[in-house]
Computed example of a mutant assay.
Amino acid sequence: MISLVPRAGKPDSALAKAVDLARDVVLEVAEPSEVGEHLGARAEGERLVTHHFACLRPGYPGWYWSVTLTRAKRAKDPTVNEVVLLPGEDAIVAPPWVPYKERLQPGDLSPGDLLPVEDEDVRLVPTYLFGDDPLDPPMDADAKAQVRRVAEDLGLGRVRTLSREGIDMAAERWYAGDGGPDAPLAKSAPDTCTTCGFLMRLNGSLSETFGVCANGNANDDGRVVSLDHGCGAHSEVKLARKQQPLPMPDHAFDTLTDDDLETI
């Protein structure tokens, strides 16, 4: 059953009685089999009433038809404002829209795909800072072009580099991901990456927290891992005696010849 939130105020009596008119309006956009019982009318304002009818259209459970009627002051004949199909509390609706850029996950980009970043991306700052005084006015397009030209002339290589916010966002993402200490692989590891000979340290502010795994037999090979991460492919891991494979038996030397086989 669809529950409708009542509006304050008493609906206009002439408009509230125009149920048949409201149903006829719905039948202009829907089949008779798709329109159910009248669910009621509510006031939307002065001389403005909305009628609701159950929707029986296949694939739309919990939806309802909504017809809004009005009339001019001192007029008796209602006028149709709009007719729409709306979702109720139990209706099946699409999930909230998420921009494409926010829906992207690692591995979604295919060869040839482009993912441009915005000029004001907080994760990046100009490699050569120009006008970094907070009292300076924001840079216009020409000023930004000059910054890029200066970066090229100085041979800085990259026009922009990671900002403090960008570094922090990356660190939080890596630490909470599969290469962090809370990953199931790390919780069952015999030791942490800090003491592993396959760990390659990073430079910069993240060097005390992260490194890159260089063990080609490990799940994290070539990936960023936290120093308190770990796995079973640690360089110093040793198997207990009971975990070691059983030794192969000595080869048996067959001394039988073809003549011996004929006498058997």
Rank of each mutant, 00 (worst) to 15 (best):
K187V: 05
P138T: 00
G107A: 05
D153W: 15
V147M: 11
V159P: 00
L115M: 02
K242P: 06
N215Q: 03
L109C: 03
L199W: 02
R173E: 15
S188Q: 06
P184V: 08
D140C: 02
K187H: 03
G131Q: 05
D108N: 06
G197T: 08
Y128E: 06
G112P: 05
G222A: 12
L154W: 06
G230K: 00
A183N: 12
G197W: 06
N215G: 02
L239W: 11
A214N: 05
G157L: 10
L206D: 04
D142W: 00
A189P: 01
V150P: 00
D220E: 10
L154M: 07
R201L: 13
G211R: 07
V147C: 05
D221H: 10
S110L: 14
Q244T: 12
N219P: 08
S205D: 15
R123K: 14
P111F: 14
L124A: 14
V125F: 02
G157D: 10
G157N: 06
L135W: 14
A141N: 09
A214P: 01
T161Y: 01
G179A: 04
P106Y: 03
D140V: 03
G230Y: 02
T195R: 15
L227V: 07
G230H: 02
G222D: 05
S188F: 05
T161P: 09
E172V: 10
G157V: 10
D136L: 01
G222S: 12
D191I: 03
V125N: 03
G216Q: 08
D191K: 06
G204S: 15
A145D: 07
S235W: 09
L124T: 11
V237S: 09
T192V: 10
V147Y: 01
L156T: 07
S188K: 04
L239A: 12
R241S: 07
D221C: 13
E172D: 05
M139R: 09
D142H: 04
R123T: 10
S205M: 13
V117K: 14
G155I: 09
R241A: 14
D221M: 14
C196K: 00
D220G: 03
E118Q: 12
G157I: 02
L114G: 04
V212S: 06
D142R: 05
R173N: 10
S226I: 09
C231E: 00
T192G: 06
P111A: 15
